[in-house]
Deep mutational scan, measured.
Amino acid sequence: ELREAFRLYDKEGNGYISTDVMREILAELDETLSSEDLDAMIDEIDADGSGTVDFEEFMGVMT
């Protein structure tokens, strides 16, 4: 189920989504998050600083 959700956002099928897209997902899930909260969450999610979120990083957030 998580893989299907990931595929919805990984429109190009390249195995990752951008941190911008991940930020939008988080904002949709919790509309009360401030910009600073979102920045901090993205920094934590994208631990390797690649600017992308792969499936493993995505799973870590969603579980």
Rank of each mutant, 00 (worst) to 15 (best):
E56M: 09
M22Y: 02
D39H: 06
G13W: 03
D48E: 08
R7F: 09
K11P: 11
A5W: 15
M41C: 07
T19N: 10
E24K: 15
Y16C: 03
S34C: 06
R23D: 00
A40W: 08
E24N: 14
E12K: 07
E1C: 15
R7M: 13
A47Q: 12
D48R: 08
G15W: 04
D10P: 00
G49M: 07
E4R: 09
E24P: 00
F6T: 02
V21S: 12
G13A: 05
G60N: 13
L33R: 07
S18A: 08
G15K: 02
E4V: 07
G49E: 06
G13I: 02
D39R: 07
E56W: 12
E24R: 15
E44N: 12
V61H: 10
D20S: 14
L8I: 11
F55E: 06
I42D: 00
G49R: 12
D39C: 05
E1V: 12
Y16S: 05
T52E: 05
T63Y: 09
L38R: 03
I45Q: 01
L8G: 10
G60Q: 15
G51P: 01
I45A: 09
M62C: 10
T19Q: 03
F6G: 01
D48T: 09
F58R: 00
E28G: 14
T52A: 05
I42C: 02
K11A: 10
G13M: 06
L8Q: 13
K11D: 05
I45N: 01
D30T: 07
A5Y: 15
T63K: 12
E57S: 15
T63V: 11
E44F: 14
T32I: 04
L26G: 00
E12Q: 08
M59S: 10
D20M: 14
E12N: 08
V53F: 05
M59T: 08
D46K: 04
D54W: 10
D43L: 14
D30R: 10
L8W: 11
V21P: 00
G60L: 15
V61A: 14
S50A: 05
D30L: 12
E4Y: 07
R3N: 07
E28Y: 11
F58G: 01
I17M: 03
L2F: 11
F6P: 02
E28D: 10
G49C: 09
A40Q: 10
G49S: 09
E28F: 10
R7K: 13
D43I: 12
L26D: 00
A47K: 14
L26N: 00
Y16M: 04
G51E: 03
E44R: 13
V21G: 05
K11R: 10
R3D: 09
D37T: 10
G13P: 01
S34M: 07
K11F: 10
D20L: 15
K11H: 10
R3P: 03
D10N: 01
S34V: 05
E24V: 14
D39E: 07
A40V: 09
D20C: 11
I25A: 04
S34I: 04
A40L: 11
D30E: 05
I42F: 05
Y9D: 02
D54N: 14
I17T: 00
D39I: 06
Y9Q: 04
L33V: 04
L29K: 08
R3G: 08
L33E: 01
E24Q: 15
L38D: 01
D39Q: 09
E24D: 10
R23I: 02
D46P: 02
E12D: 11
M41I: 11
S35W: 08
G60M: 15
L33C: 05
D54L: 07
L26A: 02
D10S: 03
I17Y: 01
V61T: 06
D39S: 07
V21T: 12
T63R: 12
A27E: 05
A47I: 11
K11M: 10
L26T: 00
Y16R: 05
A47S: 10
G51T: 03
M22N: 00
A27H: 12
G49A: 08
E57W: 08
Y9V: 04
E36V: 09
E57C: 12
I25M: 06
K11S: 10
E12Y: 06
Y9I: 06
N14V: 13
S50I: 05
S34K: 07
M62L: 08
D10W: 08
T19K: 09
E12G: 05
V61P: 02
A5C: 15
R3M: 12
T52L: 09
Y16Q: 05
R7Q: 12
D54C: 08
F6V: 03
E24W: 15
G49N: 11
G13T: 03
D10G: 02
S50G: 05
T32D: 07
L29T: 06
I25D: 00
R7P: 02
E12A: 08
L38A: 02
T32M: 08
I25S: 00
E28A: 15
L8M: 13
D43P: 03
D46H: 04
M62I: 08
I17G: 00
F55R: 02
G60R: 15
F58I: 02
D39P: 01
R23A: 02
L8E: 08
F58S: 00
R3V: 10
G13Y: 03
V61S: 06
L33I: 06
T52V: 08
S35H: 10
R7E: 10
E36G: 08
I45V: 09
G15Y: 03
V53Y: 03
R3L: 14
D39T: 06
A5V: 15
I25W: 05
E31M: 12
T32L: 08
V53E: 00
D48A: 08
S35E: 13
D54V: 06
I45H: 03
M41V: 06
V53S: 01
E12S: 06
E31Q: 14
A5M: 15
E57Q: 15
E4N: 07
G15S: 03
D37Y: 06
D20Q: 15
G60F: 15
M41T: 03
L8H: 12
E57M: 15
M62V: 07
I17W: 01
F55S: 02
T63W: 07
F58M: 02
M41N: 00
E12C: 08
D43V: 12
I17H: 00
T32P: 02
V53M: 03
I17N: 00
R3Y: 15
K11C: 13
S18E: 04
G49Q: 10
E12H: 07
D37N: 07
A47N: 08
E1S: 14
E12F: 08
E4F: 07
F55Q: 03
E44G: 11
T19C: 07
G49Y: 05
D48L: 07
D54I: 06
E31I: 11
E57G: 15
I45G: 02
D46A: 04
D46Q: 03
L26V: 03
E1W: 15
L2I: 08
T52Q: 09
E36T: 11
G15R: 02
D10M: 06
M22D: 00
A40F: 10
G13C: 08
G13L: 05
E36R: 11
Y16P: 00
R3T: 08
I25V: 07
M22G: 00
S35V: 10
G60W: 15
A27M: 13
T19S: 06
D43W: 14
R23T: 01
R23Q: 01
D10L: 06
D37Q: 13
D43G: 11
K11T: 12
T32S: 12
F55M: 06
I45M: 12
I42T: 02
I17L: 07
S50R: 09
L8V: 13
M59N: 04
Y9T: 02
D30S: 07
A5G: 04
N14Q: 08
V21N: 10
K11I: 12
L2H: 05
F55C: 03
M62N: 02
V61Y: 15
S35D: 12
M59R: 12
G51F: 04
A47P: 11
D30G: 05
E31L: 12
G49V: 04
V21K: 13
A27K: 14
M41K: 08
D20Y: 09
G60E: 11
E56N: 11
D20P: 05
A27Q: 12
L2G: 03
R3Q: 10
D20R: 14
I45T: 04
Y9M: 07
E44A: 13
L2M: 10
E57N: 13
V53N: 00
D43C: 13
M22A: 04
S34T: 13
L29M: 13
M22F: 09
G15H: 02
A27L: 13
L33P: 01
L33Y: 07
E31Y: 12
F58E: 00
M22I: 08
T52C: 05
G49F: 05
I42L: 10
G51S: 04
M59L: 11
T19A: 06
L33K: 05
V21Y: 09
L26C: 02
I42H: 01
E1P: 11
G60K: 15
V61R: 05
A40T: 09
E44V: 12
G15P: 02
E24C: 15
L33T: 03
V61C: 11
M22W: 05
D37A: 11
V53R: 01
G49T: 05
S18P: 08
R23W: 04
L33G: 01
F55G: 01
